[in-house]
Each structure stands twice: as C-alpha cells, then as structure tokens.
C-alpha cells in the first residue's frame, strides 16, 4: 500500500500524519481514502475527477499531473498547494 502524508491543515496543529491506502493510480488512492476516512482529502485535491490546478501531488517526490498516474507499491504521496497559504 502507498502512504499519503496528510497536510497538517487537514489534520490540525503543525503535525502531519500518515495513512496507508491501497490504490494503483492517484485516482484510486484518493477515492479509496475517501471511502475509508471521508471525503475531505479527496475534495481538497480533486475537482471534476481531476487534480485541481493549484494542488501539487507528489508521488515519491515527483510531481504528477494526472489522476491516472501510477502509484507504486509502498510509494510516499504528498499533497501541497501551489503557493504558501497555511492557517
């Protein structure tokens, strides 16, 4: 399973947390996460089934642009807005 490093703004405080999620593609990953943990993360990242323009998704440190991008087993996935906003 891949590991999503959850943004602190969705978790609370300044600590991040990680969650293991199954999925072979970026889309599967966020849909499976929504099924298990609720839609907040998926709704923050995806719009109309695609990655939002201003959200960067990194798989093993490499930015991906499509929800069809493959996610290797045990990959680390990070989600970061394309500018500094924060809380």
């Amino acid at each position: 399973m891949a590991t999503i490093k959850l943004p602190a703004v969705l978790v609370g405080g300044s600590a991040t947390s990680e969650v293991d999620v199954a999925g072979d593609t970026v889309r599967e990953l966020f849909e499976n996460h929504a099924d298990e943990h609720g839609p907040e993360l998926k709704d923050s990242v995806l719009e109309d089934g695609e990655i939002k323009e201003f959200i960067n998704v990194y798989v093993e440190g490499t930015p991906v642009e499509s929800v069809t991008a493959e996610v290797p087993e045990d990959a680390q996935v990070r989600v970061i807005p394309a500018a500094s906003g924060g809380r």
Binding site: P7, V9, L10, G12, F54, I55, A83, G85, G86, R87
Partner: peptide, 21 residues
C-alpha cells in the same frame, strides 16, 4: 478568507472551521 483549508491564495489564513491560531 479562503473557503477551503487546502488553498493557494498567498498569505491568507483558513479560519472558517476548526481550531486555528
């Protein structure tokens, strides 16, 4: 304020929900 916690409006703070500084 930003309407979503994971936003990209530079310098602005999401304060709408949750416990924030």
């Amino acid at each position: 304020e930003p309407d979503e916690p994971l936003h990209a409006i530079d310098g602005l703070k999401y304060l709408k929900t949750g416990d924030h500084y």
